[in-house]
């Protein structure tokens, strides 16, 4: 176990939060009704807030390693897609409102059980970030669960749309519980969350909600690679857009 593993781990968590926050913020101004536009923007803000704490921590660790000075923005804006360690789930395109809330639900359920454990991490910084984030995520999970139920058990059309979303997203849920090298290295030290432990909790919660939503899970093959920097095509476009100014005008303050 090395500091580099903690850095990779922290970046992985930060990338997850930033990429999903970014995706959600694409909805700002385009939501199905004002009240929900505001709700999803709140979730975007929470996630970007989490990403910032995590990047700032990673940046401190990197600077302490004796490398060149790094900031949260260097980490977010100047790494290419093969350096990004987020799970494939969060980078998937928004699709319709149904796909967006289902993606949020899968991820919030994961983050909920994940942060609950990370609160007890032996890394004091990660534990503090987890404690704060858990409050936010508890609400995200409630909000997204209700939406999945509402749309799954709403009209014929909404049910069909949710079935389709499930078909598009389910294959990206397996990766959430596939430990990457840096997670395995950190596990014995009590810093990282044991994904094997939270997996059954996630499955139970997701199963309950999908059942109430009258939805059934497809048996698709699971995709993975995000944690190793092997992404779907979506991330490249996302980063091209997000990083444009920093790339076009290098070294400027904004």
């Amino acid at each position: 176990m090395t500091v580099q593993h903690t850095i990779d781990y922290t970046l992985h968590l930060a990338d997850n939060a930033l990429v999903l926050g970014h995706r959600n913020s694409e909805w700002t101004g385009h939501g199905p009704i004002l009240e929900q536009d505001i709700a999803l923007s709140n979730i975007a803000l929470d996630l970007i807030g989490q990403a910032r704490y995590l990047y700032q921590y990673a940046a401190r660790l990197m600077t302490m390693q004796g490398g060149p000075e790094v900031t949260e923005d260097v980490l977010a804006y100047l790494r290419d897609s093969w350096d990004y360690r987020n799970c494939l789930l969060v980078e998937q395109a928004n699709g319709d409102w149904g796909k967006t809330v289902l993606r949020q639900f899968f991820f919030s359920a994961y983050q909920y059980f994940f942060y609950r454990e990370l609160q007890h991490s032996r890394d004091a910084e990660l534990s503090a970030i987890a404690e704060k984030a858990l409050k936010e995520v508890t609400y995200h999970l409630r909000w997204s669960s209700e939406w999945v139920i509402r749309l799954g058990d709403g009209t014929e059309e909404s049910h069909a749309r949710m079935e389709k979303a499930l078909d598009q997203l389910w294959m990206y849920t397996g990766e959430l519980f596939q430990p990457a090298g840096f997670e395995q290295a950190l596990a014995p030290g009590g810093i990282a969350v044991d994904l094997g432990e939270i997996k059954p909790l996630w499955e139970l919660r997701v199963g309950e909600v999908l059942k109430e939503a009258t939805l059934t899970t497809p048996g698709s093959m699971m995709q993975q690679g995000g944690k190793q920097g092997k992404h779907t095509e979506h991330l490249g476009y996302l980063l091209a857009e997000m990083q444009f100014l920093q790339r076009a005008y290098p070294g400027n303050e904004w």
Binding site: I33, E35, A39, E146, R150
Partner: peptide, 17 residues
């Protein structure tokens, strides 16, 4: 005031708005 489909959603919308 605000719009919501049911009371649970109204409370959540009020929280967000």
């Amino acid at each position: 005031s605000l719009h919501a489909a049911d009371s649970a959603m109204a409370i959540e919308n009020a929280r967000d708005v």
